[in-house]
C-alpha cells in the first residue's frame, strides 16, 4: 500500500507543477484533474489500510468526483468562450424569437 501513497504523492507533484507551470488553460485544467485524482487516491489508500474497510472516505471521494466534474464543465465552458475569438457563431448566439 505504501506504493500507492508514493504514487499519490508523485501525481500530486505532477499535478501541482502542471497547474502552475504549464501553459494553456486546458492543460492547467487537466493538471487540476490529476491533482484531485492524487488526493482521492491518498484518501482511498488510507481507507484501505484501516480494518474494517472505512466506507466514509469512499463516500467522500464519490462526492469529490462529482465536484471535480462540475468544476471541469464550468471551466471548459469558460475556456471555450475565452478562446472563441469574438466570432458570434462559436461564442453562442441567441436564437431569434419567433
Amino acid at each position: 500500500m505504501m506504493l500507492y501513497l508514493l504514487l499519490a504523492s508523485g501525481l500530486f507533484l505532477i499535478g501541482c507543477h502542471g497547474l502552475f507551470a504549464s501553459e494553456g488553460m486546458l492543460r492547467k485544467l487537466l493538471a487540476l484533474n490529476v491533482l484531485s485524482s492524487a488526493v482521492f487516491l491518498a484518501f482511498v489508500t488510507i481507507a484501505r489500510m484501516s480494518d474494517p474497510l472505512d466506507p466514509v472516505p469512499h463516500a467522500i471521494v464519490l462526492t469529490g468526483l462529482v465536484v471535480t466534474v462540475s468544476t471541469t464543465a464550468v471551466a471548459l465552458a469558460i475556456v471555450i468562450r475565452l478562446a472563441a475569438g469574438g466570432s458570434d457563431l462559436s461564442r453562442g448566439r441567441r436564437e431569434e424569437d419567433e
Binding site: 501553459e23 494553456g24 488553460m25 486546458l26 492543460r27 487537466l30 466534474v69 471541469t72 464543465a73 471548459l76 475556456v79 471555450i80 478562446a83 472563441a84 475569438g85 466570432s87 462559436s90
Partner: peptide
Amino acid sequence: LLLSALGRLTSAPAEK
C-alpha cells in the same frame, strides 16, 4: 466534455 471542448477550441489560434 474534453474532446468536444477541444473541437470547439481549435477554431481559435493554437495554444503555444
